[in-house]
């Protein structure tokens, strides 16, 4: 799988501990059921301009412990429906990480310090590398855990269950 897009950093910097309340506020997740509407509020409390900067296929880039806090699946849902193709972070909180793959959204652990807002990236999951075309550099990424590879290949847990009628991980 090869994904191409621009790096999008909330507040134009690498931020640690971005929690799921910041990804999508409780104000919205409780009353909005349409994921396309939720997407318009992605990262709003942290960076009100974030959604307006996005183009289809962009990457959300952050620091350590991305997605900590609430279990709300509306967080990766808002990211996915904002047409972000993957989340790149130094590390992820556990529930958010599972939720991403359950929705077919890749969450990739990588040292993001050398990535800046607007950098053109190619994420090559097959070869375990992120190519920064703006800086002409390469970042190595560890292979995804096998369970996550299976969920991603199936397009998420809903499709996985439709295919197998249960877990086959």
């Amino acid at each position: 799988m090869k994904l191409n897009g621009k790096a999008r950093l909330p507040q134009n910097k690498i931020i640690n501990d971005i929690n799921t309340d910041y990804v999508i506020s409780g104000r919205y997740k409780f009353k909005i059921q349409d994921p396309n509407e939720l997407a318009k509020h992605v990262m709003e409390d942290l960076d009100p301009e974030f959604y307006s900067r996005l183009q289809k296929g962009d990457f959300l880039v952050a620091g350590r412990n991305f997605g900590c806090g609430s279990s709300r699946e509306q967080a990766p849902m808002a990211i996915k429906y904002a047409n972000i193709s993957a989340v790149l972070a130094k590390s992820f909180a556990r529930i958010f990480y599972r939720n991403c793959f359950n929705l077919g959204l890749p969450a990739i652990e990588v040292d993001t310090d050398q990535i800046n807002e607007g950098d053109e990236l190619e994420v090559d999951l097959d070869n375990g590398v992120i190519r920064n075309k703006t800086k002409n550099t390469e970042l190595k990424i560890a292979p995804l855990p096998k369970t996550m590879q299976i969920l991603l290949a199936d397009g998420g847990l809903v499709e996985h269950f439709k295919k197998y009628g249960g877990f086959k991980v």
Binding site: N99, V158, G166
Partner: peptide, 20 residues
């Protein structure tokens, strides 16, 4: 432990969940 909504759906259907 806390999980997301689709994991809950899978649990409600199968009575199971995968864990590391």
């Amino acid at each position: 432990t806390g999980i997301g909504s689709t994991d809950l759906a899978a649990g409600m259907i199968s009575g199971k969940l995968w864990f590391k």
